[in-house]
Design a protein around this nucleic acid. Structure first.
Lengths: 198, 198
DNA sequence: GCCGTTGACGAGACTGTATAGTCTCGCTAA
DNA sequence: TTAGCGAGACTATACAGTCTCGTCAACGGC
């Protein structure tokens, strides 16, 4: 709408907002929500401190906007495929999920959210609903064709767990660098365990 | 030794040190390593601020002493049992592990360590070596009797993963309260999957 | 098409508060 | 007498949030 375009020039700039959020992402995911400062965000975004407050009102609101935005942007699902082989579908689905979660940004978000889970349970819930829960139900819906409905949900949980497996804990702890091949191996082993091929 | 008793009164008091660490545990695991203040620790420990510095020198050193101490104190293993049934042994072992990790203190430590993993990788490593790694190898050594050695290590990783399962992620995220029965169900399902009973 | 108004913006000074770390003092027990 | 200790004053720094000022680009009246 031209309304929006006209509004934007007279109103707060969407570009600035995006720049601030990008700066906030770098600063807060690097230093933590508590230790990261608004001054650092403003500097990182190439923006005046006042502009940050004009757009977001407070540090807490800024952090919340960042977390909400990142959670909403989560989309780790694989594009739909034509294949009717559920094993192949699951493999692609789990792979997309695991790769999405292995991104430096995702790992940092995961760390920050878990670090704050005791003080900011809403963030944790938001993340959970947008990420793990969605994948679980996607996997379960694929499994419904293969297993009795009563087992599909549990099997989905097991698959998702094993897909992340040890590799993800070690990745989050910073003990091992990301290793797509290792994830693939974990996914194959998980599929073999839950849906034995022969 | 009387030496120690004599030393203690003339030297820094071990009681004070312990009180400070106990206060630090409450404060830092509640507020985070960055946001928790030395003043709060001193107050919580019923101790003068100066005493904290006499004992630990700096906030960083205090945090490190706390983390190191808590990691060294980790012992989630079940007491050895006489039973020769490996399934029963594994069930007890996994149960002890999961219960130890579900303790409020353990969950808070886990959160804090993951939250800092990007900035304090040594803490993460320390925790990993003292906790998950130990359990993995304990489980693997039990499995060696049941499976070919080549599979035992991977199966152990799978068992440990499934024992924690969804319940632990949800616990750490603060989404579900601790539920020992749910963990038991997860452990039974995991054992059934890895070592089918019939 | 020109011009004055308007409001977003950058820069940075400023306030109040919190915190790390130091210093001093008076108490107490060996 | 000595040294650990509690209490709390003190310094220096950092940060959240506010305020001001000068600039600039868009809008509206002419």
């Amino acid at each position: 709408m031209s309304n929006q375009a006209a509004r934007r020039t007279r109103s707060l700039s969407a570009d600035k907002r995006a720049a601030i959020l990008a700066g906030a992402k770098r600063v807060f995911l690097r230093d933590g929500f508590a230790a990261g400062s608004v001054d650092a965000v403003a500097a990182e975004a190439g923006v005046g401190k006042q502009t940050v407050y004009r757009h977001f009102g407070s540090k807490d609101a800024l952090v919340e906007a960042l977390v909400v935005g990142m959670c909403e942007a989560i989309d780790w699902s694989a594009p739909p495929d034509a294949s009717s082989d559920p094993r192949a579908t699951l493999r692609r689905e789990l792979n997309a999920f695991v790769l999405g979660l292995s991104t430096p940004g995702s790992v940092q978000l995961y760390r920050a959210i878990i670090g704050e889970a005791g003080r900011q349970p809403e963030f944790a819930r938001l993340f959970f609903e947008a990420g793990p829960k969605v994948i679980r139900s996607r996997v379960a819906s694929v499994l419904c064709g293969e297993l009795p409905d009563s087992e599909a949900s549990e099997a989905a949980a097991i698959l998702v767990n094993l897909a992340l497996g040890d590799a993800y804990l070690e990745l989050v702890l910073g003990i091992t660098p990301p290793d797509p091949k290792r994830f693939e191996r974990q996914i194959d082993a998980a599929l073999e365990l839950v849906l034995p091929s022969r």
